[in-house]
Design a protein around this nucleic acid. Sequence first.
DNA 1: ATGGCGGATCTTATCCGA
Length: 267
Amino acid sequence: MSISVATWNINSVRLRLPMVQDFLSDHQPDVLCLQEIKCQNDQFPTKAFEESGYTYQAVNGQKSYHGVAIVSRIPLEDHHAREFCQMGDARHISGVVDAPSGKTRIHNFYIPAGGDEADPVKNPKFKHKLDFLNELQDWFDHQDFDNGHVIVGDFNIAPHENDVWSHKQLLKVVSHTPIETEFLDALQARRNWVDVVRKHIPHEEKLFSWWSYRSKDWSASNKGRRLDHIWSTPDVAEHSTETIVLRDARGWTEKPSDHVPIISRFG
DNA sequence: ATGGCGGATCTTATCCGA
């Protein structure tokens, strides 16, 4: 009995509901973690997901911005949303599923983007991003994250050279600055988080999950970044059998999300 | 040129994302 977990920054779940339903119907992930749902809890399309068979839901929304949700067709228990940086932002939701490795908590994150300038003194948004990462590190240090956890979401950091279209040209661009990429690597290393995307798609291969809306032809220019991630604790990663990044989704319909879904299978 | 766009809401303007 295997399970599959998907993550997708949908950039408005209400606007792109039909696209998400098609995705669920075509790919049948057991669990789908959505970021940037951009709606309040009572505006979330609960019924539509129920009708698609995703009857287990955990939603942490807010007005206009951010917001995360998990919809699942397998039981999802013990929901919990953690607040970071006392900002009142909806950037995390988690729930527990039965996985081949046993009871496993799936965490869905939307890490702050960080604004334009990579300077925490001049740019409060970049400071917020670093504060968020620090708080995340403290949490990982003080809680039992040794086994039984999966973390997914839009981390807004493309950590390695082949996670961006040009390492050199992006070194000063927020999402790929050394302060961010080194922080993410350190965060990953001190808890032995396994990147179950790169476990199956080698670091030597360029891999992106986001392409800017501003590019005239996203596919031809292919100036993407790998901002979306799936990590797990080592016990869960032992069961990781496959991960796919649905690049084609960037071209689905006239109005796609600027991010594409990633699906990982365990067991 | 990746920021020549696209989302929600305070809607014909503004804030935000990356």
